[in-house]
């Protein structure tokens, strides 16, 4: 099962989430040198809050703020759940 949300426009991010054997998070960000840890924390916290485990998450970030990253991930999760 797979869900995608967001875009590669500036200040946005494209998030792909897919069921997997274990949880992996990959972050490609134009501001990664400054905000990698913060982006990772946002993703981990959101997964935790939604009780999601064993997924692979890929974040392609164009400078999105945390609430944007969280929102895109939530939508991607909803879409993953609907994907059968």
């Amino acid at each position: 099962m797979k869900g995608i949300a967001g875009s590669k426009e500036s200040n946005d991010c494209l998030i792909t989430i897919e069921t997997s054997k274990k949880t992996t998070i990959e972050i490609n960000s134009i501001v990664g040198q400054f905000f990698y840890d913060q982006i990772l924390k946002t993703v981990e916290d959101t997964l935790k809050e939604q009780n999601i485990e064993n997924v692979s998450v890929i974040v392609e970030d164009k400078g999105a703020l945390d609430y944007t990253i969280k929102s895109r991930l939530l939508t991607a999760i909803e879409r993953m759940k609907e994907d059968v």
Binding site: A5, G6, L65, D66, Y67, T68, K70, S71, R72, L74, T75, E78
Partner: peptide
């Protein structure tokens, strides 16, 4: 629709 609603919601809550 859901994507936009999520974004506006989290923006309002945390910005």
């Amino acid at each position: 629709k859901n994507n936009a609603r999520n974004l506006v919601k989290n923006y309002l809550l945390t910005s």
